[in-house]
Nucleic acid binder design. Sequence first.
DNA 1: GATGAATGAGCCTTCATTCAT
DNA 2: TATGAATGAAGGCTCATTCAT
Lengths: 207, 207, 207, 207
Amino acid sequence: MSNLTGYELTHKNIIDSGKKHFLKYGYERSNLRKICKDAGVTTGAFYRHFQDKEDLFVSLVQPLAEEILSFYAKFEKKSFESLDKNHTEKLAEINVNGSIESALYMFQRKEIFELLLYKAYGTKYDNFIEKLVELEDKNRKKAMQVFSDKKGEYINIPDETIHLLDHSYINALCEIVVHSKSENEVRTNANIVARFFNEGWRKLRGF
Amino acid sequence: MSNLTGYELTHKNIIDSGKKHFLKYGYERSNLRKICKDAGVTTGAFYRHFQDKEDLFVSLVQPLAEEILSFYAKFEKKSFESLDKNHTEKLAEINVNGSIESALYMFQRKEIFELLLYKAYGTKYDNFIEKLVELEDKNRKKAMQVFSDKKGEYINIPDETIHLLDHSYINALCEIVVHSKSENEVRTNANIVARFFNEGWRKLRGF
Amino acid sequence: MSNLTGYELTHKNIIDSGKKHFLKYGYERSNLRKICKDAGVTTGAFYRHFQDKEDLFVSLVQPLAEEILSFYAKFEKKSFESLDKNHTEKLAEINVNGSIESALYMFQRKEIFELLLYKAYGTKYDNFIEKLVELEDKNRKKAMQVFSDKKGEYINIPDETIHLLDHSYINALCEIVVHSKSENEVRTNANIVARFFNEGWRKLRGF
Amino acid sequence: MSNLTGYELTHKNIIDSGKKHFLKYGYERSNLRKICKDAGVTTGAFYRHFQDKEDLFVSLVQPLAEEILSFYAKFEKKSFESLDKNHTEKLAEINVNGSIESALYMFQRKEIFELLLYKAYGTKYDNFIEKLVELEDKNRKKAMQVFSDKKGEYINIPDETIHLLDHSYINALCEIVVHSKSENEVRTNANIVARFFNEGWRKLRGF
DNA sequence: GATGAATGAGCCTTCATTCAT
DNA sequence: TATGAATGAAGGCTCATTCAT
C-alpha cells in the first residue's frame, strides 16, 4: 500500500470511492461525478481507468463472483463424492461445514460480497443470488434422488418448493455474511442456520 | 365500478396504469409521463389526483400495508392467548395455519403485495419486509420465553440469529405469494415451508 | 403562419433554428443546446418535439427525400415510355426538360435540399447523393441498351465510368440548385448542363 | 527507410497511423489517442512531433497540396503557350493528356490525395477541391477568350456555369483517382471523361 | 526529452414537476 | 378544472490538450 504510483493511487482512490458510494446508494443511484469528486479526480480521469460506470462496479465485484462460482463447483464435487459413496450420514456434516466455511470466506470480503449480492441492481450482476440458488437447486435435486433411491420410494417435492427453500437458505447465509460483526458471529449463525435447514429437509424427506 | 364520474374514472385509470408500470419496472424506473400516457391522462391532471409520483405508489400500497400490520397484530394476539394457556402443543398448528391463511389472503392481493414488498425501492416502503420481520421477531422472542419457562432453562439464541431466520421465513412466504400460480400452490407451499421452519425451531430450542 | 398555438410556435422556432444551424455548421457540428437557445427554448422542451437531434434533422429533410425518390420514379417511367416507343430523338429533349424541371422544383426547397445533400454527414441521409446517382445509373444503362439495340452493336462503357459521369451530372445539377440566386439562373444552367452532358453521352455512344 | 533514428521512426509511425485513421474516419472523427496508441506512441510524445491534431493532418497533406498547385501552374503555362500560338486544334489534345497525366500522377499518391480532397473536413484544407476548380475556371475563361477572339464573336457563358462545369470535371477526375484499382483504369476513365467534357465544351462554344 | 495521467469544458439526453392558458 | 408545453438540473460520457514527474 505504500509505494503506489500516481496512476495506482488514483485507481485505488476511484475504487475506494466507488465502493463507498455503491455500498451506500447502490449501483444505479450512485452518481459518477460524485464518485470522482470523492476520489479527488475529474470525470475525464475516471475514463482512463474504467470503461464506464458499470465497468467500475464489475471491476470491484467480478473476481469475487467468479471465485464464488468456482468455490461452489468445488464444494459440489466434494459433496457428491460423499453421496456416491452413500456416506449419507456424513452429508449433513459436509453441508454444514461447507456453509460455515463459505460464509467465513465471504465474510473476509464482506463489502465486496454485499455489493455483489445486494447493490448490483442495474448491472449485469443483477440477481446474482438467483444464480447461486439455481446451483443449490441442482445439488439439492441430486441429493434428493440419492435419498429417494435409498429409501426405495420417490420423495416428491415440487421444484418451486425446493427453489424457494433454497432461496431462503442461501439468502440467510448471505445475510449472515453481510450483517455479522465478527467471525465468531458468522460461525455461530452459519452453524445454526445450516443445522436449522438440515432439520427442515430431513423432515421434508420424511413426508 | 360501473357508474364512475369522470374524476373517478381518471383516478382509476391512473391507478391501473401506475400499478402496471410499477409492477413491470419498479417504482424508481417507472416513468411518470408514460404512466400518464398509458392512463390516457395528462401530467397536469395527474397532479390533481396525486401529490407526486410517490403518492401514487403509496395510494396503491398503503391500504394493504396497514392491513398487513393490523392482520399481524391480530394474529399476534391470538397466538399469545394460546401461549398463555400453555397450549404449546397447539402453537405449531396455529402458526402453520396462520401462515397459510395469511399467504392465501395476500395471494388475493398478489399484485399490490408484490408492489409493496418487491417494487418499492425509492419509496417510503423501501424494505417493508424488514418491518414484518421485526414483528415476527417480537413474537418469536415472546414464544421463546414461554418455552424457556416451561423447560426451566434459558434457551439462548442470539437476536441476530432469530432475526435472520425470521427474515428467511417471512421472505419464503412472500415469495410463495408472489410466484404461485394458484391458491392450491400457495396452500401446499405455505404448508411445507411453515412445517419446515417449525421443525427448525423445534430443533433449535433443543440445543 | 399567423395563428400558431404555443406548441406550434415553439415547434416552428426549433425547426427554423435547426435549419439555420444545420445549414451553417452541418449536422454533426451543430450544437443542440445552441439550437435550443436560438429557438428560445430549453433542451427539455426540445425533447417534447423531437426524439433526438437526428430526429430534428430527419424531420426537416425526410419529406423532400421521399419526394425526390418518387419524383425520380415518375420521371423514370416517362423516360422509358419514350424509349420503348423508340422515340429516341425525343429522349434527349425529355431528359433535358426533366432535369430543368427537377432543378426548378428543388430550387423552391433550396435550403432543405442543401441540408439533405450537403449537410447530412452523421445522419442516415449521409451520402444521399449516391442513392440518386445509383438511380441515374440504372436509367442510363437501360437507355444504353436501347441505343445498342438500335445501332446493332454493343456499346461498351465500364460501369465505373458510367457511375462517375452520372455522379458528375447529378452533382452538377445539385450545385445549380444550391448555388443559383434565381429561377432563371437555375433554368439557364440546368439547360446548359443537361445539353452539355447529352453531348458527352452522344459522343461516348459513338466510340 | 532502413536506418531511422528513434525519433524518425516514431515520427513515421505517427504519420502512418494518422494516415490510416484519417482515411478510415476522416479528420474530425479520428481520435488522436487512438492514432497514438496505434502508432505505439504516447500522446505526450505526439506533441513533440506535431503541434496538434491538425498539424499531423497538414503534414500528411501539405506537400501534395503544394505540388498540385504548382503542377497546375506548370500545366497552365504549357496550355497557354499553345493557345498563344493559336494551335487550337492541339488544345483539346493537350487538355486530355494533361488530365490523364495528372490523374496518373495523383493515383501514385492515391491515399494522400484522398485525404486532401475527401477527408479534410475540419482542417484548413476543407474544400481544397474548390481551389482547384477556381484555377480551372481561370484557365477556362482565358481559353474561352481565345476562342471568342478567333470566332470573332463573344461566347457568353455565365461564370457560375463555367464554375459548376469545371467543378464537375475536376470532381470526376478526382473520383477516378480515388476509386480506380489500376493505372489502366485511371487512364481509360480519365481519357473518356476528358473527351466527354471536351465535347460538351465544344458544343457550348457553338451556342 | 519522454511519459501518460489528468484536465475540464463540452456533448446529447432524461424526467419529475410546474404553470400559463 | 384540465391541459400539456416548458422547465432546468442532473446524468453518463468524450477528447484534444497540458504538465508534473
